[in-house]
């Protein structure tokens, strides 16, 4: 693993990754080992399972306390120079992202492109592509404060991909979208993941089944499963609660992990 982002490195690789919050009794992310390559990588788990903390660590917003984390070949924590280089290749959208209501969609993307050091001459083309990707070209002059919830999230996604990142991290990207928007968003995500590493966190199993190439199930800060959707389906226990096989597999994995933890405690 090198100091600068490598073109051939995996999206994110972690070994024994541990992250703690101040005054917290337990680690938010506890001894997690993972590997995210190109394609859609889904972080699944209930609220407080550690998904957001892990995403924040991948985008360098969260400090790593123990273990190793490498993003696009850059070991974290990195020097400021390397971190800035890495950030040119990383896109991020938090679950509840804020915005300046007076900014137009175009201005929002121009600003995002500037923050990601997209060359001035390339910006118009990059912004046009991002707008087209989320189907907001016709609304580029609309103020963010006037967009619907779904359109706003699409604008947020456009800001996260405007610099054509090699790793895209999206926290609960389908939250607040109506069914039609979710279906369209899945298509968008599939397109994005064709040539880059996309990491999404979600507690919606349907979304995971529809788009994920790789799934990491988290419970209590720990990774309790890592593998493909078919591999996860193999964990299904018909006796467990859930409406779909994947949901029953998820609840089985979570219950098994909790039983193991209680036994060891």
């Amino acid at each position: 693993m090198g100091r600068s982002p490598s073109e051939h490195a995996s999206g994110a690789v972690a070994h024994g990754l541990t992250i703690r919050y101040r005054r917290a009794a337990t680690a938010a992310v506890d001894d997690v080992t993972l590997r995210f390559d190109n394609g859609v990588n889904a972080l699944v788990g209930r609220n407080g399972a550690g998904k957001t903390t892990l995403l924040n660590a991948i985008v360098t917003m969260q400090r790593v306390h123990a273990g190793q984390l490498s993003v696009l070949g850059v070991n974290l924590p990195a020097t400021e120079r390397d971190r800035l280089q890495l950030m040119r290749q990383v896109g991020f959208l938090p679950q509840q992202f804020g915005y300046i209501p007076g900014f137009t969609v175009q201005e929002f993307l121009e600003y995002a492109a500037w923050l990601k050091r997209v060359p001035t001459t390339a910006r118009p083309e990059f912004i046009a592509d991002a707008l087209a990707l989320v189907d907001l070209t016709a609304h580029r002059r609309t103020k963010l404060g006037r967009l619907s919830g779904g359109m706003l999230r699409r604008a947020g996604i456009a800001s996260a991909v405007v610099h054509r990142p090699r790793l895209l991290a999206l926290d609960e990207p389908t939250a607040g979208l109506d069914p039609e928007q979710r279906i369209r968003f899945r298509d968008t995500l599939r397109g994005l993941a064709a040539d880059r590493c996309v990491v999404i966190s979600s507690h919606l199993i349907e979304d995971v089944k529809a788009i994920a190439d790789h799934v990491l199930v988290m419970e209590g800060g720990r990774a309790v499963f890592a593998g493909s959707v078919p591999e996860m389906l193999a964990e299904e226990d018909p006796k467990m609660p859930g409406d779909t096989p994947l949901e029953r597999a998820y609840t089985a994995l979570v219950q098994r992990a909790n039983q193991t933890r209680q036994a060891s405690a």
């Binding site: 280089q85 990383v90 938090p94 804020g98 915005y99 300046i100 995002a112 923050l115």
Partner: peptide, 22 residues
């Protein structure tokens, strides 16, 4: 404090340019 008020500080914290410049 605008970025904190508007909850857009994530954009600066994940920016590729030095903090003062951002």
């Amino acid at each position: 404090l605008r970025d904190e008020r508007r909850r857009v500080e994530y954009a600066r914290r994940t920016s590729a340019i030095p903090a003062p410049l951002s």
